[in-house]
Design a protein around this nucleic acid. Structure first.
Lengths: 340, 340
DNA sequence: CCTTTGAATGATAACGTTAACATCATGCAA
DNA sequence: TTGCATGATGTTAACGTTATCATTCAAAGG
């Protein structure tokens, strides 16, 4: 076989079933779609025929005819990252529950053109809507979405243009900073996330704002990223400054890297320096010391994005197009009152 | 609009382009497919017309007509887990490179029936093949795959039935055990993975085998799981036994949980107890102490599975149906010679 | 009894694409 | 010149499904 037919090719069609059941193909279609106006006896016979032939409807034909895909596209950047993986998991779960299929695209490089190409690839698929888990710096212009395509995004510049679901990062940062100041720290240092992430920027801005509110001059934030190595590098620097007694990190990975740098530099956590992460990695609980962190509900963000996309696809009005999901400060042993 | 058309509905068809370009729809099809026998001038005109109308081909119609889907299905269990996330990332990358679309299904519960239902959902989609990243305990019977569906799996009981790509866990365990024994440890304890995982079982068996080879009676393995909490629980127990000087863990998460339990119990790592993980989490390098681990290349496993599936789908013979991917022992500070 | 209603079923025509075949120049060898 | 290959284009008929309209038949109402 030079050109083997696909796995389902040669599979029985609606006509084969109709012939076997002695009805018209239209009646088989009705049974297949669960239409009401079929007599019980006929339905039985058709179902038996389907079963006997192992019939399953051809999606391509259904889609072509009905124009409804029951499929959503998901755009991710690096699905192995904690946040994206959990969010994607939430998307998959919610989509499956709604009876929708999910097609995925991943973009390794955050470059806007590559992002645009991935969206194009997805959009050429038959999708009813698009969930953008991560789009980096790409803007709506880069993506060149077909007009009218329902979209929901999470963390990106697209938040300003499309409906979104994301964690209440401002509240999360506020809780974290209050916690540290409440313990008696004079100020809170900050290791920022990558420059190309909107949520990193939001977190940094919220941190600066909270300190300002408390009448404290914010120290310069240390530029960083999302990874442990970033926290480690920043930590080696911070460890030299005895004024540093409390640090809010861009995320948990960074916090863990920071903790190791502090350990190595002979500064104890939390006795000398308190550390707070962000995200709520399961591992944080088992770090040494267990990590105080701002937990966010990624799965729920994924589920909400699915809801937003499906609502648009079904023409329902969105009661609120920016869903804010509460965060929760989890206090563990990496934070304590400063030494007197 | 009660029944709004899908996003791409109303979009121009091949006929609209043909009319505008003043050619037949077949010629447009030829240009669209990149067929060779179109004159340069005509191709130009058609491309301009496409561009002007914003034409993009209707996938459903293409699939229906040609019977080729250029899509693979991916079955996962908990995509947010390290191994699955990285493997999936590899699958996405390889599939995109091959010009294939990926549809995903996730099964929260490892139950065999639910797994079967997910496969059914996927198989009803138009897919050319199926990559099974994780199938838990499900066997080929549970999955009820359509006959002739190309499949590749990674870690599951399916390995015996279908082509697979997975890490050389036996070699990885051998390296780890040799490393520990080479440091002078009298024996190596083991925290096992979950009972329903094949690779957990493979790792445990390899550990027992290595000890036997070295003429050492293997201590009872501690039953565990994949998560840090499992390592922590096991660690509280192990810490009480002064005979324990080296522990091989089911994976890195477990190892980190173990390390914390040892810390809390006053046993130092690596001075009192050496700990080895498995997987090679990026975070392991920044744990305290940095974790010695067996690194495996999940992305490559994903890419290999895609290769295996596509080879089958294209009717090529598989030169080897079980791809073994080398692992690499990364020695860090969590292992050292035992105290004299 | 005839009409009316409604439910069950059937027939037909699309949906957008492509494979297969047909047509029509053009060029070149015989 | 004829004959035949070659390349560019057009025509037709599917792929499997479902929307729409048409038909049939039995039950209900007068």
């Amino acid at each position: 076989m030079r050109n083997p037919r696909s796995a389902t090719a040669g599979s029985p069609s609606i006509n084969d079933v109709a012939r076997l059941a002695g009805v018209s193909s239209q009646t088989v279609s009705r049974v297949s779609r669960g239409a009401p106006n079929v007599s019980a006896g006929t339905r039985q016979r058709v179902l038996q025929a389907m079963d006997k032939l192992g019939y399953s409807p051809n999606r391509a034909a259904q889609v072509l005819r009905s124009g409804a895909f029951r499929t959503i596209g998901v755009l991710t950047q690096q699905i192995q990252r904690t946040g994206e993986a959990w969010t994607t998991s939430g998307v998959l779960e919610a989509a499956a529950r709604a009876g929708y299929t999910v097609v995925m695209a991943q973009v390794a490089q955050p470059g806007a053109e590559e992002m645009g190409r991935a969206v194009h690839r997805l959009a050429q698929q038959a999708i009813d809507g698009l969930v953008i888990v991560q789009a980096g710096t790409a803007t709506a212009e880069h993506l060149a979405l077909p007009a009218g395509m329902p979209v929901a995004s999470s963390d990106s510049a697209l938040v300003e243009r499309y409906p979104s679901a994301s964690a209440d990062q401002v509240q999360g940062v506020r809780d974290a900073v209050s916690h540290l100041l409440g313990l008696g720290h004079r100020t809170v240092h900050h290791i920022a996330g990558p420059a190309d992430s909107r949520s990193a920027h939001v977190r940094s801005a919220a941190w600066a704002h909270c300190l300002a509110e408390a009448g404290i001059a914010a120290p310069d934030p240390i530029p960083g990223g999302w990874e442990a190595g970033d926290g480690y590098a920043a930590g080696l620097e911070l460890a030299r400054d005895p004024e540093v007694t409390a640090v809010l990190c861009a995320n948990d990975e960074v916090a863990l890297g920071l903790v190791r740098a502090l350990h190595e530099s002979g500064r104890r956590v939390p006795e000398d320096v308190s550390v707070v992460g962000f995200d709520g990695l399961p591992l944080g609980e088992y770090a040494f010391p267990p990590l105080t962190t701002v937990q966010q509900d990624f799965r729920r963000a994924g589920a909400e994005m699915v809801r937003l996309v499906l609502a648009q696809a079904q023409g329902q009005p969105l009661e609120e197009s920016h869903v804010i999901i509460p965060t929760r400060l989890v206090v563990r042993a990496s934070t304590a009152a400063p030494a007197a």
